[in-house]
Nucleic acid binder design. Sequence first.
RNA 1: GCCCCCGUAGCUCAGUGGAUAGAGCAACCGCCUUCUAAGCGGUUGGCCACAGGUUCGAGUCCUGUCGGGGGCGCCA
Length: 691
Amino acid sequence: MAKGIPSLTLIRDSLAETISTQIRQLQESGVLPQGTVRHPEIQDTKSAEHGDFATNVAMVSAKGLGVNPREMGEKIAAALLNLPQFRQVEVAGPGFINMFVDQAWLAGHMVLVLQAGTEFGRTETAAPQRINVEFVSVNPNGPITIGSGRGAAYGSTLCNVLAAAGNTVHREYYINDGVNSEQMRLFAESVRCLLLGNAVPENGYKGDYVMEVAETVRRMFSQGFHPLIAYSEKVLSEGPHPVLARHLESHRRLQNLIETHGTEGAISHADLGDLKLLAETLMTEAQSAALSAFGVKFDTWFSEQTLHDSGQVQSEIDTLEKAQVADTQSYRTQLKLAKGGKIEEVLQEQQAKDEDDADGVEPTLWLRSTKFGDDMDRVLRRRDGRLTYISSDVAYHWDKFNRPPNADKLITILGPDHHGYIGRLHAVVAALLVAEGMVKAESTGEPLGDIDAKLYSTPEERDTCHAALKLAREKLEVQIYQLVRFMKDGKPAPMRKRDGNIYALIDLMKEIGEAAKPNGTEEEKLEVGKDVARFFYLMRSHDTTFDFDLDLAARQSDENPVFYVQYAHARICSVISKAKESGFQADSISEDLASRLTHPAELALIKKICDLPWEVQRCAQDYGVHRLATYAIELARTYHAFYDQCRVIQPEQPELTHARLALCEGVKIALRSVFGLLGISAPERMESRAS
RNA sequence: GCCCCCGUAGCUCAGUGGAUAGAGCAACCGCCUUCUAAGCGGUUGGCCACAGGUUCGAGUCCUGUCGGGGGCGCCA
């Protein structure tokens, strides 16, 4: 585990701490009155005449202390001026404290950057958390689409950022392979129809990828399952493996069919469940390969069905029933909500008694999720006895807290179409917290109102449920990313096409690579495609819809910002290698480094480099990782400007050359760090566009 | 009806409650004998959808209106 650097070595944190200390001393010596002062925010200035950094601490704190903000600012400024970090401190406007920092002090931070090396950008945090992040998690019934690409890019980068900010992160993909799934049943049915030469069902799957799955399945039948069986047996002999065990049983069944009926006969006699297992496994493998090419790796690919097989689903449901947050009474509660989420009315809808139902009909098992803020109760077990998807979610969310062990928090990243799922997921976790006895509510002592009485039987139950929901919202954070509209030739390009085909992420990468690097190897093309696609997804806030210009992405030009940032890295590598030819080393830290770097373009660059850890921390706090892409562009721009104004290699000025090379090395370190977080490559060379 | 997201330059989008609202693309003008011109500098371009409110201060927070996108299954 990487250690990271203590956050106090960061410029902004260090300034904030210094200002806090000075204010405290001013209060102790009676220059400023006692009272709470907010932690100073260190802001950028918009023009050089306002100095290097500014803080509004006087403006936001003056009122509480009962003093004039400008006067307070003057007193703080006077105190700061005595410190070596500052060459000038001024109060401006309504009470801004504008700080002009000492250039050598500023440049001295470069030493810290160079010492941190590849660790630069990582920081320690006072309260590290153990976090499970689940993302992508699409059904194994098709390739990863360009739509899911956003979730993949966002989720993987968020994980990188959370880890860089000092947390322990577990990356997880949930495979929706439950045997009860209607969609997966239909997918398997479609594959079977293709295998048997029958027409695909009305709402079935028709894309070319389904045909490919069917062809692969046919090949597996003709080759037989012996190798797979042998492999599973070997692995299972070394220890338990629930998923493989299920596969082994299925493969044995299919092998028996082949031996009795021959290849074609086996296909037509095969159980739909066995075909489904083959089809979804192939699809999952394809998804995994595409995501891997996209730079996304998971610690766990978690199979939903294992929760059923192990009995965890049933046992968690029993626990919920015991705790009376789930029951089989024949009504469903629905909430009518007014604007602002206030409950206007509680409706209890009796279930129709269907006399036509045959034997074996069980009463519906309801999760009383309306006790936990959901707008309607949810079905856990259908009347035909089959469990719903949400029933697996109950066991799944409980199980997820084991990855990493004793997880503090779960983050689930979902697409815009799953927005309506947030409420019931929180209800699921809240119900679990109640049922597992994890909630201790303080009684509010308030009696049950009319509306409450329809939801809860006692005030204590209500208070417990409310407390559980509050805790659930802390334990499970759902992040929704918004829709992407893909534009081609100025027109929207649909993710799912009429002919049943899907615009797959892997195809997007290939297309971009083909256009950007027509003479490259397949691997190089995929890498370019990955870089461009990831950067495009990550440039915009995940929380807003945006247009993905496929033509621009495919164009290999200066219009494409990813090449702009990568070019900065390639330029630096070129300078450093040229310098080496002249006998200069970039990674040596000279003692007088700080005093040599005085040019405005150099100082701007130092400030920008040193901002990276701070940017990472901010992103980890509010999950707005798109700012890292903005940061990369800004850093590249600052470097390009420096490059234009400050010649690095000057043999007649070896000290300056060394200092500037160290600066280049610092930019390189920062760029590589941010590229790593964004999941894009750092090319050492970029060929001229002409070639 | 309810929920979520959005409305900022011609286009695509940034913008910690702070000072004169930014970038890329598009348009125009400059800069390669010198470390990669996939670069740099400059010009043009704005009732931050609208109306109230909170605040010393609002593009940012709150309420409402209008407009756009998405979601509200015993599907997952």
